[in-house]
Design a protein around this nucleic acid. Structure first.
Lengths: 186, 186, 186, 186
DNA sequence: CATGAATGAGTGTTCATTCAT
DNA sequence: CATGAATGAACACTCATTCAT
């Protein structure tokens, strides 16, 4: 495993453990079994490390969420798949997405970033756009539709991770159904 | 105005200006027209200050969100009121709630905190419980129902503040309608 | 003795010992029996400390060099006094003036600095200006005249300190005489 | 061009650009188109590099200052030549000689160094010794005589480079004349 | 009670030097 | 010989916290 990957892994783990803004470069170095100075061969500074990690994770996240969606036969099934992917991803990598807002708060080139994000989630956007074209989904703005349909998946998963709620598979099915009700025409 | 309140006000303002994790005790002291040491008469340490501020803000938030809800004639209208209150509160006090996750990340006595939160939002919980009893809302767990119905208000408002979306009053009405679809039986 | 003075003294001593650009803030703090952070209550940063010290020393230097000059009866005696003052000052505080160029190399507001320096050495400038008016000194630019008359005092003292030369009182008198020959009309 | 020379050239250039104590070995390596480790094949450490460069420059300096001196017909003309050579050298290679004290501050074997320096400047010493033998110059110690006669050339040139003074050719001739007055019998 | 000077451990970052390739 | 990735001690500077006044 190369040093860059080690550093990424160490940073990811530390963010999970102590929280994004408590992570020190020394900690990262120790965790990555690397000297402090070595980090600076791979990343300009701490900001650069965090920004690149954020990008990296966003891509992984996109991959996970959109996995297998295109294979689903119907739009509703595609939506369900997106929802379930979101849920499982959050449960697995909870630590990182707990810090989502902190990542968002990092200074970055927003113009560029927004474009990349859109590209990475193009399958997702496509599902919602098709839904509108077919008259299955409500004719709302893309972002609104996605927020209504999938954001609850994030929020519920977060609460599940924190132990506020404990959903079984029936409850999940119900939640998905409810979200579908929110976005579909009927 | 007593010192404790001054310190709260100063901290809140600084969080809005420079961001939660850039606030230093010295800055707070200066802004509050108080000596650095004085803060420690009222708060055990920085964490305690932030935790108490968080609690304080949560109460204000509860007040704002639940304002006038009981005066609404029907359950649907009560829900709509909750949703709109959430939306406007976020737009007004955006700076603080952008940092919601950072507040959440503060170490705290979760047991106690959860109880207090529940108490503060009792009107809100009551609306959803009544809705279930009357057979108007889906028979889901309280937390799930609230997440489905109101969390999109937080998320959409956040995006509005960030400039990702720009919703007019029609779009807001549509969003509320969609959330109602998510939680109501039909 | 107040902290500011302690820090000045410590810095001066360290410069003498290890050289201007090897001095670390930690060393200064230790030598001054002060915590590292304390320095920053009195000086904005390292540059500020060095610049203020430089100013401070320049003033002391001016005082020493011009001491008793006005009491001398004749212009030649005044010049001799300036020369001897320069010589003895260098021998006493050699360490600092060995670093003269390094001090000069510090970034500073040159406009302001040049003015202050001129003010501090006004007696010295006056001697040379009067000399020209009386037709005793050559009609050269002030700076040139001072360089010709007194810079050798600095250079010789430096060499004396370094052990390159060892001048007795006769040799010093000769050197002063030679410098007078350089600047006087004859 | 061999690596050793490349490294010398790179170091000299960097000192001129960024100043002696801001030069890093990595910069030198890059500028010299050489790997960082390679420098250590030719120089024991950074100090050694700088010390050797200093020696190297001293030799060049000697060459420049003594250039054409022997061709001058009279002692006074020889002196004038030395003075003018000093002046022009300083204006051309100002960057390096501005750092003269910093070079001097480098730890070195002074015994050996002093001898080498004397050898390199043998023509110069010879001029002054002959002057004394011929009864043209004052019977002072060599070092003193040289200091009185030539050090002002360094000092004035330095001030010229720094913009403190601006001497035209007449002023230079005057300065040379004054220096001659300082060292010559009359 | 209130103050604010003082502390010192901790931060992000640099850089001379080494050594496996 | 030459390389350049890796090192880790050192740097300037910050800031939560304490305590004598």
């Amino acid at each position: 495993m190369d040093k860059r990957t080690q550093i990424f892994a160490a940073t990811e783990q530390l963010i999970a453990t102590v929280g994004l803004d408590k992570v020190s470069m020394q900690q990262v170095a120790t965790q990555a079994h690397v000297a402090a100075g070595t980090i600076y061969r791979y990343f300009k500074d701490k900001d650069d490390l965090l920004r690149q990690l954020s990008s990296h994770l966003m891509m992984q996240c996109a991959t996970h969420i959109q996995q297998g969606v295109k294979d689903e036969p119907t739009l509703k099934r595609q939506f369900e798949r997106l929802w379930r992917n979101t849920w499982t991803m959050m449960l697995q990598r909870d630590h990182l997405l707990l810090s989502r807002d902190q990542f968002d708060a990092l200074p970055r080139d927003d113009q560029l970033h927004a474009q990349r994000e859109r590209d990475a989630f193009s399958d997702l956007y496509q599902v919602f756009q098709e839904g509108k074209q077919q008259g299955v989904l409500k004719p709302l703005d893309d972002e609104v539709l996605i927020t209504l349909g999938l954001e609850p998946a994030f929020c519920l998963a977060r609460k599940q991770v924190r132990g506020v709620i404990t959903l079984d598979s029936h409850a999940i099915a119900d939640a998905i159904h409810a979200c579908w009700d929110a976005i579909s025409l009927h």
